[in-house]
Design a protein around this nucleic acid. Structure first.
Length: 544
RNA sequence: GGUCCCGUGGUGAAGUCAGGAGUUCACGCCGGCCUGUCAAGCCGGAGGUCGCGGGUUCAAAUCCCGUCGGGACCGCCA
């Protein structure tokens, strides 16, 4: 019979007649010995040995489990696995994931402590704040009608800890957001949250890198190379997204200048023209069988993403097979071939539009056509720096909207354009990206009140409004605030990728379903009227 | 708020498009046999409200409408 614990399986040889069935809890006393010749099992890590002369004591019988407690349960309906999560977690895959997670947490703590950070816990019952994600509310019993909120992140408190002179803070922090769930999003999730004083951007990036690299090494056994950096602008130019997946090529190719004098109307006035070359070998779709239908679907996809259209060109031995080839002259066609490096069998996709649209549409098509599953190696970490300070403008007020949050430090080289050309101003905000997944983001914060006023002014926020909305946060700075900055990254996402999982539920012991319920505990549940009454609450019947 | 996919004995699947008796396969379960095997082998057996409700039809797992549950995605996640 097979004996299983968290570390694996071992075969036991039982000679006497005991009624032991699947999943019974037993105590076995015996002798570890080599297996007799010819009975070794190379499939099993313990396949060379066995426990012989076993005395078996049944500590607890077990009913047959509702699904096989082994790798076959990978195929079982996830709702059933979650209903019996305690059985699901007995399996090797889940035990492994829990242990990778524990090692990552431990490595992150050590790396932060080694760099002089101290862990400070921050409250779970916090005030509700107007900006950002929808919050979970906790009604107050002593003050009916008033609510606490559960923290979306410890943002407020960690910056106040800098005011408090903590200097280097970190926390493995639970964050809660009442937004719709996804494969990479749960209501509650864990972050490595950190903040440090008297530093610039490089210091923060170095400190976080040390923790991430230590975590990766703890999880996989391999220490990744130093994390490379690219600017947001370069990420958009080359990959068309702000979270580039560096594991594959298909980079965007600049063609704007090629068509400066073109006769082709769709290209003539376009501010930005770029292309991607879909390699006939590297693509995740079979280009050879790509018919007119699929090409039309690509065009629809591009239009849905905001492009006016999509030019496709199949590369043949003697030219291009494309509905627009006849509108382009020889030198234009030659430039397309040279710039993209197109070879027969490839597909070239061209978008001509505003710079941002051109980049974003091609970047999305690049991901659609070439991106491997997120957990496929190699692991490519990248810092994306110099994010724009503002992203777009508010439709109602016309004022710029903050790219990160309104306390983000503008890039010092761009300060003179804060009033004249706010949308061109870069910031000291940065993201950490792994295989095209955003792991986290952070920024250097504004600690100078004059500069904060300028940024609020650029955002169209008056002094009174700033004081009303953010005063509780900014007033403490009047008592002295050091230059500071920080970062937070999602541990669930990191652990999922490092465990080879494409869903963070697989690395969370007791996750929620996509609809936010827990099939094991039946949370959320309706509560007793008396509980509501104590909180001064009454449930309104749902509208029909 | 929206789009798409899934729901068939305890588990996984086939059957659904093209309506005709709860049919099939594998695993598990129960009983027996065998056994130095290892997701063992042989024999026998039990087990189903085809998620739920309604409609169409002589007849519904199958078609239609609704609903519940699960999943992927868009919106959302400063």
């Amino acid at each position: 019979m097979d004996l299983r614990d968290h570390s694996g399986l071992i075969q036991c040889v039982v000679d006497n007649d005991v009624d032991v069935r699947s999943e019974y809890v037993v105590r076995i006393t015996g002798v570890v010995r080599a297996r007799p010749e010819g009975t070794e099992n190379e499939q099993l890590s313990t396949g060379a040995i066995e426990i012989g002369e076993c005395e078996v004591e049944v500590l607890r019988e077990a009913e047959p489990p509702p699904f096989p407690v082994d790798a076959r349960a990978d195929e079982v309906d996830e709702g059933l696995r979650l209903q019996y999560r305690y059985l699901d977690l007995r399996r090797e895959r889940m035990q492994g994931n829990l242990r990778v997670r524990a090692r990552v947490n431990s490595a992150v703590r050590s790396a932060m402590e080694d760099q002089g950070f101290i862990e400070v816990e921050t409250p779970m019952l916090v005030p509700s704040t107007p900006e950002g994600a929808r919050e979970f509310l906790v009604p107050s019993r002593k003050e009916p009608g008033a609510c606490y909120a559960l923290p979306q992140s410890p943002q407020l408190f960690k910056q106040l800890l800098m005011v408090s002179g903590v200097d280097r803070y970190y926390q493995i922090a639970r964050c809660l957001r009442d937004e719709d769930l996804r494969a990479d999003r749960q209501y509650e999730f864990m972050q490595l949250d950190m903040e440090m004083s008297f530093v610039d951007q490089d210091d923060v990036l170095d400190a976080v890198s040390a923790a991430v690299l230590a975590a990766a090494e703890a999880a996989t056994g391999d220490r990744p190379p130093p994390i490379e950096r690219i600017t947001w602008h370069e990420a958009m130019e080359r990959f068309g997204v702000d979270k580039p997946d560096l594991r594959f090529g298909m980079e965007l190719v600049e063609l704007t200048d090629v068509f400066s004098a073109t006769q082709f109307k769709a290209f003539a006035d376009a501010p930005s023209i770029k292309a991607i070359r879909v390699d006939s070998d590297g693509a995740r779709v079979d280009l050879a069988t790509l018919g007119r239908n699929q090409l039309d679907r690509l065009t629809e996809r591009a239009q849905k993403l905001g492009a006016k259209g999509l030019v496709w060109m199949k590369v043949t031995a003697d030219g291009f097979d494309s509905p627009v080839a006849k509108f382009l002259n020889e030198s234009e066609l030659a430039a397309i071939r040279d710039r993209t490096g197109a070879a027969p069998g490839d597909l070239v996709l061209i978008v001509a539009d505003e710079w941002a649209t051109t980049c974003e549409v091609l970047g999305q098509l690049r991901n659609d056509l070439g991106r491997p599953p997120v957990h496929d190696g190699p692991y490519r970490y990248v810092w994306v720096v110099d994010f724009p300070l503002f992203v777009g403008v508010d439709r109602l007020t016309g004022a710029p909207k903050p790219g990160h949050h309104p306390f983000t430090m503008p890039h010092p080289d761009d300060l003179d354009r804060l009033e004249s050309e706010p949308l061109s101003v870069r910031s000291r905000a940065y993201d950490l990206v792994l295989n095209g997944w955003e792991l986290g983001s952070g920024s250097i914060r504004i600690h100078d009140p004059a500069l904060q006023r300028r940024v609020f002014a650029a955002l169209g926020v008056t002094d009174e409004e700033a004081d009303r909305k953010f005063g509780f946060f900014l007033n403490p700075f009047r008592f002295g605030a050091p230059p500071h900055g920080g970062f937070a990254f999602g541990l669930d996402r990191l652990v999922a990728i490092l465990s080879g999982e494409e869903n963070i539920r697989e690395v969370i012991a007791f996750p929620k379903t996509q609809s936010g319920s827990d099939p094991m505990t039946n949370a959320p549940r309706t509560v007793e009227p008396a509980q509501l009454a104590e909180l001064g609450l009454r449930v309104v019947p749902p509208p029909n």
